[in-house]
Design a protein around this nucleic acid. Sequence first.
DNA 1: CGCATGATATCAGAGCTCTGATAAGTTGTC
DNA 2: GACAACTTATCAGAGCTCTGATATCATGCG
Lengths: 188, 188
Amino acid sequence: MRKTASRSTPRRPPSRPAPTTARAARSRSPSGTNAAPASAPLPGEGKRGEDGHLAYLLRQAQAAARLSLDRALTSTGLTHPQFVVLTMLKAYPGLSGADCARIALLTPQTVNVIIANLERDGAIRKTPHPVHGRVLQWNLTRHGLALLARARLKAAAVERRLAGSLGKRELVTVRRWLAQVAAEFHQD
Amino acid sequence: MRKTASRSTPRRPPSRPAPTTARAARSRSPSGTNAAPASAPLPGEGKRGEDGHLAYLLRQAQAAARLSLDRALTSTGLTHPQFVVLTMLKAYPGLSGADCARIALLTPQTVNVIIANLERDGAIRKTPHPVHGRVLQWNLTRHGLALLARARLKAAAVERRLAGSLGKRELVTVRRWLAQVAAEFHQD
DNA sequence: CGCATGATATCAGAGCTCTGATAAGTTGTC
DNA sequence: GACAACTTATCAGAGCTCTGATATCATGCG
């Protein structure tokens, strides 16, 4: 597994308290020449809220969700890209690295790194002799299946939170938008 | 600079006449022991479409949009994280690295890398002596402002495509969802 | 004053992700 | 059968991102 030394504190030092922080103090500091920086907004305020750029909001939301998922997965020793690849490989056994790249919207080089780490950890195995081709086919080991099963439980919780605030119709809208964005920009 | 003609990363060839591709052929290969891998779906099909997990859809959409934005920005020499930091620094001049980290939902170490590269490229400058504190305040240079201006034009095009397919009400739904996801998971 | 606490900046290490380039195997065409 | 075009796997290099750990500075408390 991933050389997990000691993940005792998988938490970001939670420094997100009241506006009486060092930052607020510094904003009022008599630095003189520099206009005091306008106090930075919290997520959800101003440009960072519903009025912000879609690209920025998308990035922000994905970053937050990804981080949360990654932390939920630390107990399994998987990273979230590894979780994605494992899931794909279970759904479609025998995919090659290039196949994975296409499906995950990643480059083959990127997938190569992820696959190399998964193999090193004994979660996947390449079929030694694909008969035809230079291609390498990948499959989950028993260990990989167990890993995936545990990771799924964690991921399910994140999934529920993502959908939590949405009504039935809204959920359809969001899903359709996400799928369409992926499909449209995929051609680039 | 983008080298549109020949890309090393294999994109799905647009002209695929019949299911007689290399992958499909391999799927039917007489490897015997291995169950033929079910043909992988295109983005938008099956689990990869509207029915997929929200977390997966979110990741997929952001990956596609990010990649597109990154490529649009290559002509400016900026990466998209650099674009984000530059934008923040213009809106709130004099932020410290730690401030940027909080706003961008990133760790201070991550922002440190981005800031270091921006400084190396002469796009930002640290105010030499913040009077009080060990803090470093950052501001855009003239060069940084020019860079940002050019990048904004490119980003605007991506932004339009993101919103393209959405009606007025749907746009509100999507924006609200994204903002809320960011806010909710931010606490983790 | 001296020290504990908290915030900031950084160093180190690992993993993810891209672009570019190279080598090797497959397939289709002549 | 030989050659061209395409696919696959990798190597190399750069940038982004996280966790952990350390050193410095500021503030609050005894």
